[in-house]
Design a protein around this nucleic acid. Structure first.
Length: 229
DNA sequence: CCGGTCAACCTGATAT
DNA sequence: ATATCAGGTTGACCGG
């Protein structure tokens, strides 16, 4: 739908290429919710006894009022936290994702909320942060899967081509004995792209090399991987 | 505390 | 302009 995702969650993700956000902006919902949700509209909610003009810092209707409604058997009208309440909650969440009972109490007093409401807010915030993070990880893994699948397909094709070509492995002579080495004893030097005898001492001393076949460019032996048969 | 869920509330799109 | 709808957000609750 049209709504831009408002969840400006601060996410830390152990996923390459997905660095966590700055965390400075936005926070979780509240007035940031639904993109352009304007404050005028928002704070005319049940929290506000319709005070015109400037936003009230901590709209009441949260602490005591809903007790009766709860008793009456239906949910109390939904509380909407003010910008300021959200800001403070976000701020303390940034400092700490969990609250000690003392902190909870203090924050509740400061925000004119019940400690239970503060507690619930933190629980929801943790849960939704985690959810968002999981979604990101999921996206990342999907991309990984995609590129690995593609790579796999490519390699399969290469194997098929190779099989079709039926190329004989190059003959490499031992630098010591001047006798042909078995293919299993050969590796491809990734640096110089030469086939070397794996057993050769003296780092990468290039072995005598047979001339490249015509299709050298496409020669799959030149991939920097050990050559096996 | 967490995960799942409910339900109030909000927004943008579309129909009338 | 207004009503309606679909879908997203978020405060609250429940069971484990």
């Amino acid at each position: 739908m049209g709504s831009t995702s408002p969840s400006g969650l601060e996410l830390t993700m152990a996923v390459p290429g997905l660095s966590s956000s700055s965390g400075s902006e936005g926070g979780f919902g509240c007035n940031a919710g639904h993109g352009s949700r304007n404050a005028a509209m928002r704070d005319l909610d049940m929290n506000q006894p319709a005070s015109g003009g400037e936003e009230e810092e901590f709209p009441m209707g949260s602490v005591e009022e809903d007790e009766e409604e709860r008793g009456a058997g239906h949910r109390p009208k939904k509380l909407r936290l003010s910008k300021e309440q959200c800001r403070l909650l976000e701020e303390s969440f940034r400092l700490n994702h969990t609250l000690t009972p003392k902190q909870k109490e203090a924050l509740a007093v400061k925000l004119k909320l019940r400690p239970r409401q503060v507690e619930v807010w933190f629980q929801n915030r943790r849960a939704r942060t985690k959810l968002k993070q999981t979604e990101l990880e999921c996206e990342y893994l999907k991309r990984c899967f995609g590129s690995l699948t593609e790579e796999n397909r490519r390699l399969q094709r290469e194997v098929e081509e190779l099989r079709a070509m039926r190329v004989a492995p190059p003959t490499v002579l031992s630098p010591h004995t001047r006798q042909p080495l078995p293919a299993s004893a050969l590796t491809m030097c990734p640096r110089c792209e030469r086939i070397t005898a794996a057993t050769t001492t003296g780092a990468g001393a290039p072995a005598a090399r047979t001339p490249r076949p015509a299709a050298a460019a496409a020669n799959p032996f030149h991939r920097g991987v050990p050559i096996r048969r």
